[in-house]
Structure formats: structure tokens, C-alpha cells
Amino acid sequence: MAISSSLRPLFLIFLIASIIQVSMAGPYSCTPEECPSKCSFRCSATHHPGNCIDTCLDCCLKCLEVPPGTFGNKELTPCYNSIKTKYGVPKCP
């Protein structure tokens, strides 16, 4: 199957973006299917697990990464750590 000349630039951009995304996967990256279990563990020590899990899932699905442990360590996951609320404070637990 040949790619038409009008679609080649778009195909190349998609291919390069895919390669970059795979190469940027860090040690704490995950698939969308893994987000619920990773967020359940991440939020297991909080007094508000429902709110924590909902927020964690939002962050995980955007970044495909969750920091290790139940608290802190967000500096190990740059995307997860960079998400802020509309007030400029960290959003992800």
C-alpha cells in the first residue's frame, strides 16, 4: 500500500511523534489500562480516596505515568508533576 504524496508529511509527523513518545517513556510510565491500579495504590494512604483516585486518573490518562509510592516523588514524573489547577497549584496527587 503506497501513501499518497499529499499524506506523506502528515504520516511522517505522526511517525516521528510516535517514536518520540516511546523513547520518552520513563520508568514510571504506564498504559491507560494500568492507570486504575496505579492510582488505587497511589491514593491508598489518603483520607479522601475517592477524590484522590479521580484526580490521579485524570493526570495518569493525560501523562501515562504515576509517581511511585503513596506520597511525594512527583519530581520523578515530569508530566504528572507539571499539571496545575486553574489557581496554579499542583493538581495531581
Rank of each mutant, 00 (worst) to 15 (best):
L61T: 07
L10Q: 13
F71H: 13
A25M: 15
C43F: 01
L76F: 04
G26S: 11
L15P: 01
C35A: 10
P78K: 07
I20T: 11
C59R: 05
G50H: 11
C43W: 00
V89S: 15
S6K: 09
F41I: 05
H47I: 01
L57G: 07
C30W: 05
Y80A: 13
D54V: 14
L12S: 12
L12C: 10
K62Y: 08
L10F: 12
E34C: 07
C79I: 14
S40A: 15
E34P: 02
C59T: 06
M24Q: 14
E33K: 14
K38Y: 13
E33A: 15
L76H: 09
P9G: 06
S37Y: 03
N81S: 10
S23E: 07
P36S: 08
V22T: 12
L61E: 08
L10C: 00
L57K: 11
S29F: 00
L15T: 15
L15N: 02
T31Q: 06
K38I: 08
R42A: 04
Q21G: 11
P49N: 05
K84D: 04
L61K: 07
P90G: 08
G50E: 11
S82C: 12
H47T: 13
E34W: 02
S44L: 14
A2L: 12
P27L: 11
S44V: 05
L7R: 14
T85Q: 05
S18E: 15
E34N: 14
A17K: 10
V66Y: 05
P36T: 03
S5N: 12
S29P: 06
L10K: 04
N51R: 10
I3D: 08
S4A: 06
S40V: 12
N73A: 08
Y87T: 13
I13W: 03
I83D: 06
K86M: 12
T77S: 09
P32C: 14
N73R: 15
C39M: 03
R42V: 00
S18H: 09
T55M: 10
F71T: 03
P32F: 15
L57D: 11
E75I: 13
Y87N: 04
H48M: 04
N73D: 12
P78L: 13
P78Q: 04
G26W: 08
A17Q: 14
C30V: 09
F71E: 02
D54T: 11
A45R: 03
F14E: 09
E65F: 03
F41Q: 11
A45Y: 02
N51L: 05
T70N: 03
P78Y: 05
G69N: 08
K38R: 14
E33D: 11
V66H: 01
K38V: 03
I20F: 13
S82K: 14
G50V: 09
P9A: 03
L64T: 04
P27F: 04
H47V: 00
V22A: 08
